[in-house]
């Protein structure tokens, strides 16, 4: 192993509350990156707004901290410009599934080679514990004046419907398993989701560490095979996968639900449309030669030039 996980830590003060699940996720990210031996200069961690978005400052990389809800498009822009970079999004369920839900869907449709890690604690921490999109209805945390009146979205099913080609769910304090999921997600070529369940000890007094530990189990225990290699296999497996994703309550499955190898990542689609894109990506391609443009407008836009055409009719 070439690097220690310590090499991915920064000197910024990690300012989360004691007992926050984010610590577990951060640890898993550090270790996954070290085991994958990713050069921090080629790593872009794009954080959302919220507690989890601070991850941007705690992982050594060439990082970007987005506006609330916009981590996905911002990260997509980075990836389009420089497809060689490893791009990992770290955002909360409020950021990615509430204000940014449109982008959460769109990135799956493109299958951009990006990893989306949802820090899923079901509450808005930095604004004092309001219900987030994954808080089930009827749940009354102590931060809420009454039981949650809105239903929860299922991040896994939304990702499945949107075309994500890698979908996993982990638990924040099972760092060994979570690390493996993050490694697999980053290594996957296409849009990958790792939904990480986590307690928020300050605001979510219902879905606590104990609450989760009593319910979670791993798909591997049931000999689950998430890999899909052909469209036929996808059609056959997808109802089983969806059913598994719906399971919630007394038993909550964790693990890799889907690894779809049938779809071309977006970068390859662009390369196919415009051969040379990967070798001369937008971030580094020349824009001129000695100050002269690469193309002559009169030639490239010739169809706009009015000229007499000889034609027999």
């Amino acid at each position: 192993m070439a690097r220690s996980f310590l090499e991915y830590k920064t000197d910024a003060w990690v300012q989360w509350c004691p007992g926050c699940g984010d610590f577990g996720i951060l640890n898993a990210i550090h270790r996954a990156l070290a085991e994958l031996d990713i050069d921090p200069r080629n790593l872009v961690v794009v954080g959302g707004i919220g507690c989890s978005g601070r991850t941007t400052f705690y992982v050594k990389g060439s990082n970007l901290h987005a506006l609330h809800g916009r981590a996905i498009p911002l990260a997509t822009g980075v990836k389009l410009a420089n497809p060689r970079l490893k791009v990992v999004i770290a955002g909360g369920d409020g950021d990615l599934l509430g204000i940014g839900a449109g982008h959460f869907v769109a990135v799956g449709r493109r299958n951009v080679d990006i990893t989306v890690i949802v820090f899923d604690n079901a509450v808005y921490g930095l604004t004092k514990g309001q219900a987030a999109p994954t808080l089930p209805s009827g749940v009354k945390t102590k931060a809420l004046p009454g039981p949650n009146i809105q239903d929860a979205v299922n991040p896994l099913l939304l990702a499945l419907a949107s075309g994500y080609t890698f979908i996993a769910r982990g638990y924040a304090y099972h760092t060994a398993q979570l690390k493996e999921m993050i490694k697999a997600a980053i290594s996957h070529r296409g849009t990958a989701l790792v939904d990480v369940l986590q307690p928020c000890p300050t605001y979510n007094n219902v879905m606590t560490n104990q609450w989760y530990e009593e319910r979670v189990y791993y798909l591997e225990e049931e000999e689950w095979d998430p890999v899909v290699k052909t469209p036929e296999e996808y059609r056959r497996k997808v109802p089983l996968i969806a059913a598994k994703m719906l399971e919630w309550g007394d038993r909550i499955p964790l693990g890799v639900f889907l690894k779809d190898e049938t779809k071309e990542p977006f970068e390859e689609r662009l390369e196919r449309q415009m051969p040379g894109y990967m070798d001369n990506p937008p971030s580094s391609r020349p824009i001129s030669v000695d100050g002269y443009p690469l193309a002559d407008p009169w030639k490239v836009f010739e169809e706009k030039v009015v000229k007499k055409v000889e034609a027999s009719y």
Binding site: L74, V78, K79, P282
Partner: peptide
């Protein structure tokens, strides 16, 4: 936001 991300990457 995508344009900004692309610009920041060069």
């Amino acid at each position: 936001n995508m344009a900004i991300g692309a610009a920041l990457a060069g």
